[in-house]
Design a protein around this nucleic acid. Structure first.
Lengths: 372, 372
DNA sequence: GGAGGTCGGTTAAACGTTTCAAGACCAAGG
DNA sequence: CCTTGGTCTTGAAACGTTTAACCGACCTCC
């Protein structure tokens, strides 16, 4: 299927200044044959006066080699600047020691948290984590998934694009174990880790109610599933108050700072009595714009006149002048969990049963709701 | 030879759990446990009733294969769910079609710009870009460099850590072509792309002077080389005014928003006559804190009472209520240039001469200096 | 002094591709 | 009928490791 792509044959590198030994024994090349920058184990073996098997043992089972021999080999390795060929290694082993992580959007700190968590677990297991930037592009996403499969990585982590409804389901994982992060649409054919947006919305509203707020406003886009779920959670919390608290909803086009500023204008345009005493923003950037525009020129005091809480603990919002309370989605934990699931599948393919883990967000109270 | 051990089990898409068979002796060896569901070209060849050479041709030189044969092979590929083994492919080719990018810090949008630029060029050349997150950690940086060398990637891009003075020079590139981005310490043994901080500082000051400012203040950490260079540039611009403009310097501990707020306090504590009418911040986040604290509660009007310009066009500062003028470091261009240099070296190792390209930053005027 | 163990090392067979010389077949030309 | 040339296809040799089987000393124990 992928036959079209051509390999863009990398031209052999000219032997630089350092020429280890001539080509390996079978150097009978009748073709323009000028290269071999990197010495192989055979070169090392010859230099050290041992066999390749011994060189391999020095690398992989040092204990099995007598110290004097080992030293000779190590000296030869250093002298030649030998770097073991991981490609041949992987080929022989049938699978590499690398994990691939396909990311939908590197500019969102949520995903970077996942990377950090996943990397931690991967490193503990002696594996390396390589990242691929899908950049919101479905085609790139698929390209990188294919690449990782071809390269026979040990496993794949994926934060998928939201998956527009009209397109079919994502192709199932073929040969390589895969774990989905933050993909509520993930089926039973893979492991997945998600976050509980409903509960997060509940916690946010609960926090506002518990700190004395009674007129709540939820601001947030209507078309985004996660945001809608957060609203549902808030609704539930309000429902528990038997009418003591009201919850109004103000849809926004998107969830960026400009949208937040527009919400602020709407609020400020109202009479004092009609204003909410707390706002739940569907996302931190929305909350950021909101806080900026509400507080500018001392129009409203936050949190005294009005409290604001965001969602997702986005790094960009950390630098708000008035620190914004938020819900942390446990991105790092999500990365750790996903990597653990993946490792479990990689190691025990036999009796692995796919699971779906749902993580709970947690409240991060800051000045925008509880003051200084 | 392989006929005996390979069951005729087609083992197509692994629909659920359950692994075909424990297969032949799984060596204890190192880390990886093996499961090998993936069919190889030999399986495809058998299914299609042709030889492996023909399968290879279908994949790489479709024109050389007669249409009927080609179709049979393609059918077999689809039926078996064959995914070509990129590891074996790379081994045979001697080098892969992947470029590795080792990044010092994924949270800084400057580096993400580079990624975007590099990716663009790499894709055009039919190569894939894989990212490694060094996370400010020299050990990780080295680990990933080693990994990429072992994996015999076609080339390596690197945004190195600042390189604390006490440690020795970075080990030279061994077998794989490498290009350094934003590394002023890069020697002549590699290609490199840097940004001209002095000129950027000059442009920033020039802009302020040209828009009528006369009392300039430069705020910025003393220990960071790039920031110091920006100051030098500003100094030069001021020098050209024959004393008409003054430039004061206010060192900060670091260049984050809290430092900016402290600078603001210092300024506000002065009498009106002693205050600068423009501030050059050594970095955007510093400018962000500065703008926040200067303008809060309507204390000073920006840019009427005081202008502020930042540096580096950091995405985090985009969301400031008052958009902040800045200097863009042409990160995307840097990525493109670096990738081009790398490709040149990869392709024509013979007559490649290492070069060092210095890119010029450009002014991005916004409201914080020129009003609305 | 021979059987059996250990230790340290070598040899050769994979791993799954690509590539290229050589073979099979066929049509056309002499 | 034999040659020539062309088009497809095949077969086998690499690529640089790892690993199991093997081998030769040397040591120990009866």
């Amino acid at each position: 299927m992928r036959g079209g792509e051509r390999a863009a044959l990398p031209a052999p590198r000219a032997s630089a200044r350092r020429v280890p030994g001539s080509a390996t024994g079978t150097g009978q090349g009748s073709i323009p044959d000028v290269r071999r920058p990197s010495p192989g184990m055979l070169d090392v073996a010859r230099t050290a006066g041992v066999s390749v098997g011994t060189v391999s043992n020095v690398l992989n089972n040092p204990a099995k080699v007598a110290p004097p021999t080992r030293e000779k080999v190590e000296a030869a390795i250093a002298a030649l600047g030998f770097v073991r060929n991981g490609v041949a290694r992987s080929l022989k082993a049938g699978r590499s020691t690398t994990i691939g992580f396909v990311l939908i959007d590197l500019t969102n700190s949520f995903f970077l948290d996942m990377v950090r968590g996943a990397e931690e677990v991967a490193n503990e297991a002696g594996m390396n984590l390589l990242l691929a930037n899908a950049d919101m592009n479905p085609v790139k996403e698929q390209t990188f998934l294919d690449l990782f499969e071809e390269e026979r990585v040990a496993g794949i982590l994926l934060t998928p694009r939201p998956l527009a409804d009209e397109e079919g389901p994502r192709p199932a994982a073929a040969g390589v174990p895969r774990v989905h992060l933050n993909d509520p649409t993930a089926g039973a054919e893979v492991c997945s880790v998600t976050t509980d947006n409903v509960h997060g919305g509940y916690l946010a509203a609960r926090h506002l109610i518990d700190t004395g707020r009674r007129r709540l406003l939820f601001a947030g886009g209507d078309q985004l599933d996660p945001v809608r779920q957060r609203y549902e959670g808030a609704l539930r919390a309000v429902g528990e108050t038997n009418g003591a608290v009201t919850l109004e909803r103000l849809p926004t086009e998107w969830v960026r700072p400009p949208d937040g500023r527009r919400v602020a204008e709407t609020i400020l345009a109202r009479t004092v009595g009609e204003r909410p005493d707390a706002v739940l923003a569907g996302a931190d950037l929305l909350a950021l714009g909101l806080v900026q525009a509400l507080s500018v020129d001392g129009r409203l005091r936050i949190p005294d006149d009005i409290a604001v809480i965001g969602y997702d603990n986005n790094r960009t919002a950390w630098d708000s002048l008035i620190p914004i309370s938020t819900l942390d989605q446990a991105g790092e934990e999500m990365g750790r969990t996903a990597a653990s699931l993946l490792l479990e599948e990689v190691r025990g393919a036999e009796d692995h049963v796919h699971r779906s883990v749902r993580l709970q967000p947690f409240l991060v109270p800051r000045e925008s709701t509880v003051g200084r």
